[in-house]
Design a protein around this nucleic acid. Structure first.
Lengths: 216, 216
DNA sequence: ATACCTTTGTTAAAAATATAAACAAGTTTT
DNA sequence: AAAACTTGTTTATATTTTTAACAAAGGTAT
């Protein structure tokens, strides 16, 4: 394996996509693939694929290409989806409910061990076979279960205080669905933002942009 | 206003974030702000902010800075959130339900005019005051309502066929929540992907990466 | 077995993006 | 009126990302 010293974020962000394509190929029964053919399928350059993979090691063979199952497994190892880190969800409203049931955490390196809410109407209900716990039990829960990731599905105005508390309880990473900008608030905490509102507005720009162009 | 010819994607993606910060400042009653102070709040350089804004025009004033409300409105205009493009949602499962109720489409340039599903148990139910329609009515609906954006909240295996059909019905952009890679399938169709699974795996990498480092 | 083809890993070049510095011109403050 | 700010803009620099190129090695075919 090559030197890990700082693989760039864009490379990391492409790994899950490689993983998806390889899974599909694997399920189709394809055994091997060249960077050239994969690049055509994915709309990238072969060069970029080879360079991305070489950040982690040489998984291919000259004249042959890549063994799909092996590469698929290697990327899984790089991403660490075999580790099954414990995750908790904070906020079980519409969005939290959907995220908890829709994502396959177990296939992506996580085990959702607790769902918390402070709404009495929600506490005690079941989501995906798990009973929603009261936020007042969060501290005790974290001390015994020691989750490492928190999924924030709460209103933006509560994000900061919740995050601070969770960090003090040992949380090392956030999957942040709030509009609040968690990044740069902590130093050694991983933050993955899902700013749905921003995404929608970006689409809005693209739509109106293209219609502007048509007018001209 | 400056020349629009190809503002880079990174700049566009930063606009919603500027918009958010300005909204917050506006709500706090702050009237003006300098690029320097905004840069400190947002964790950017003043230079980058001035350069980003100057892709679209000069909204500030020497010695004064930017009028927050004006800049907020200008960015809104650039993004086109005043246009209220018609959007439809395809798939009203857990995720679709949450997206439909959680996002404030009206504040982000869209009007959600129809929600479709092919599950008889879901068709006819109400989501956010709107009755879920049967997918068989999609064609007629599009011919009369002429929506421009479709929000895909369906299983990945149905994404391609649905997208093709929607494009033939006049859809010009997708907000894609499926794992299927819609991009590069069409030429003049805007696609904004929200690959939640990819995002989760990226977080997985970050978490395991940092723990690896701690071990060393 | 030999020659040819394919494809990698890697290096080098190019392009894009971000950062920083600098400054005239206009605004506010004192 | 002078001093202190701050923008819009230009220029330069650094960093990051992408693309191109190619020797070396394995595969394939005859």
């Amino acid at each position: 394996m090559k030197n890990n010293n700082q693989v760039s974020i864009p490379v990391i962000k492409r790994l899950p996509r490689y993983h998806r394509y390889l899974e599909e190929l694997k399920n189709m029964g394809v055994v091997r693939i060249s960077s050239k053919e994969l690049s055509q399928r994915m709309g990238l350059t072969a060069s970029q694929i080879r360079q991305d993979l070489n950040c982690f090691g040489g998984f291919g063979q000259q004249g042959y290409g890549y063994n799909i199952e092996q590469l698929y497994n290697e990327i899984g190892l790089i991403l660490g989806i075999n580790k099954k880190s414990k995750a908790i969800m904070i906020g079980a409203g519409n969005l939290g409910h959907a995220i908890a049931t829709h994502l396959h955490f177990e296939n992506r390196g996580f085990d959702l061990v607790g769902i918390f809410d402070n709404n009495p109407q929600v506490v005690g209900t079941e989501i995906g076979g798990k009973t929603v716990l009261n936020s007042t039990d969060l501290e005790d829960f974290c001390k015994t279960e020691k989750p490492v990731v928190a999924i924030l599905c709460i209103p933006a105005e509560y994000a900061a205080e919740n995050a601070d508390k969770l960090v003090s309880l040992g949380i090392k990473g956030f999957w942040n669905f709030t509009q609040y900008d968690l990044m740069s608030r902590y130093d050694d905490i991983a933050v993955e933002n899902v700013h749905l509102g921003d995404s929608l507005m970006t689409l809005c720009y693209q739509i109106n942009k293209s219609s502007d162009n048509n007018e001209v």
